[in-house]
């Protein structure tokens, strides 16, 4: 089974790598994206105040906070984006029936989809976090950047099971980009990647506890402020792992429901 999964990941990786090599604008956009988001928010925010006000309120350097946040945005949503948009796109271009009749498990395929982009996005971390951390913090910044990249990957992996549930919801609803355009910003808002969770209203904050991404993102943001992992941060990472495991059976079941519906109703083209 593991061998089969690895061969699926390899096939997906070849597909994604070929696409990126063929369309270099994707690579260009990927590298530039964290910088654009960071510059966008920092410049806009600075025009109505100063960076020190931000630092007073959050305890973090805004440039580090938003370069990390925008990198986290890209990495964390990998599984959700890939699974919901790929199967939907296959339906749109008429290749979904071929995927459905293939003997490969759709759950395994869905899991395999996220890994190639996750690997590629590590490079995005190297091109965005490392230069910024190094400029602002010198050599200790390099180590911190590597730890943040590792935590971000952990964050994406622990979110993957809930991401599959969300993706299944998008696919089952048949709403395509309309549902995506609601769920995507909602995930970002609840996870706290651009706005720290501790500043959210109490009711929303309470709701985010069951959200693995929100817990791991808070651990990363605390790491930025405290420059180390505290017992509380480790507890958050542990909670994210436990929630990921808890959602695993539900995610497999939700994807199977979608698969079953497609088999009964047929894929629309």
């Amino acid at each position: 089974m593991l061998k089969r999964f690895i061969s699926l990941v390899r096939a997906e990786y070849m597909f994604v790598a070929a696409e990126i090599i063929r369309r270099k604008t994707i690579l260009f956009a990927l590298i530039l994206w964290p910088y654009i988001i960071m510059a966008f928010i920092v410049l806009l925010g600075s025009s109505m105040g100063t960076m020190s006000y931000f630092q007073q309120k959050t305890g973090a350097n805004p440039i580090l906070f938003f370069i990390t946040g925008s990198f986290l945005l890209i990495v964390s949503l990998i599984f959700f984006d890939e699974i919901s948009s790929r199967f939907w796109y296959d339906e749109f271009i008429g290749t979904l029936p071929y995927i459905m009749i293939a003997p490969t498990s759709k759950t395994m395929l869905a899991l395999a989809m996220g890994f190639p982009r996750l690997i590629i996005n590590i490079l995005v971390g190297l091109s965005s976090l490392i230069p910024v951390y190094f400029i602002l913090k010198s050599f200790p910044g390099l180590v911190e950047a590597l730890i943040v990249i590792a935590l971000s990957i952990f964050s994406a992996l622990t979110f993957s099971t809930l991401a599959i549930i969300f993706s299944s919801l998008v696919l089952i609803s048949g709403g395509g980009w309309r549902v995506l355009s609601i769920i995507r910003p909602l995930i970002m808002l609840i996870s706290g990647v651009l706005y720290p969770r501790f500043l959210l209203p109490l009711t929303i904050k309470f709701f985010t506890i069951i959200f693995p991404l929100a817990n791991s993102v808070e651990a990363i943001q605390l790491f930025l402020v405290q420059e180390g992992l505290t017992a509380y941060s480790l507890m958050l990472l542990g909670l994210a792992t436990a929630l990921a495991l808890l959602y695993a059976p539900v995610s497999i079941r939700s994807l199977r429901i979608w698969e079953h519906r497609i088999l009964i109703k047929g894929a629309k083209t």
Binding site: G45, G49, F54
Partner: peptide
């Protein structure tokens, strides 16, 4: 929300 955190 994040932009408002910069406000004087």
């Amino acid at each position: 929300l994040p932009v408002s955190l910069f406000a004087n």
